[in-house]
């Protein structure tokens, strides 16, 4: 199947990526080439087949309920959390004002 320009524009908006008209000119045909390629999957008979969940047999482990059990997974590191922020003030991240 192929998609139109408006669909690609809508998807770009959903993915929060600005696209100019020129960007769309290139993206739409590329997008459709790839979609046409992956469309071949619909030929495959998958009746009775479960979607892959774990590629290698493995069981989900649950961790113990302990605070700051590992400094790499715990809190109390505000300086590190904010160190790379484009805007950080008074211990917060700053973003353009949001009106709810």
């Amino acid at each position: 199947m192929s998609v139109d320009r408006a669909t690609v524009a809508k998807i770009a908006s959903l993915a929060r990526i600005n696209m100019s008209e020129a960007d769309l000119d290139t993206m739409v045909p590329e997008f459709n080439t790839i979609l046409n390629f992956v469309d071949q999957l619909s030929e495959v008979d998958v009746s009775g087949v479960e979607p892959m969940t774990a590629v290698i047999p493995n069981k989900l482990r649950l961790r113990a309920d302990a605070v700051n059990a590992d400094p790499l997974t715990g809190g109390g590191i505000r300086d590190k959390i904010l160190a790379n922020a484009p805007v950080a003030e008074h211990g917060f991240f700053g973003v353009p004002k949001v009106i709810e």
Binding site: L62, D65, V67, D70, T73, G74, G75, I77, R78, F93
Partner: peptide, 30 residues
């Protein structure tokens, strides 16, 4: 493993995982 306590100073109970730093991964709490 960051704390759930209410009322702490902003961003003091935030781990690298909670802040979604690149390459961070979730492990569920039993």
């Amino acid at each position: 493993s960051s704390s759930t306590q209410f009322g702490a100073e902003p961003n003091t109970q935030v781990s690298l995982i909670d802040a979604a730093m690149p390459g961070m991964l979730p492990v569920p709490n039993q």
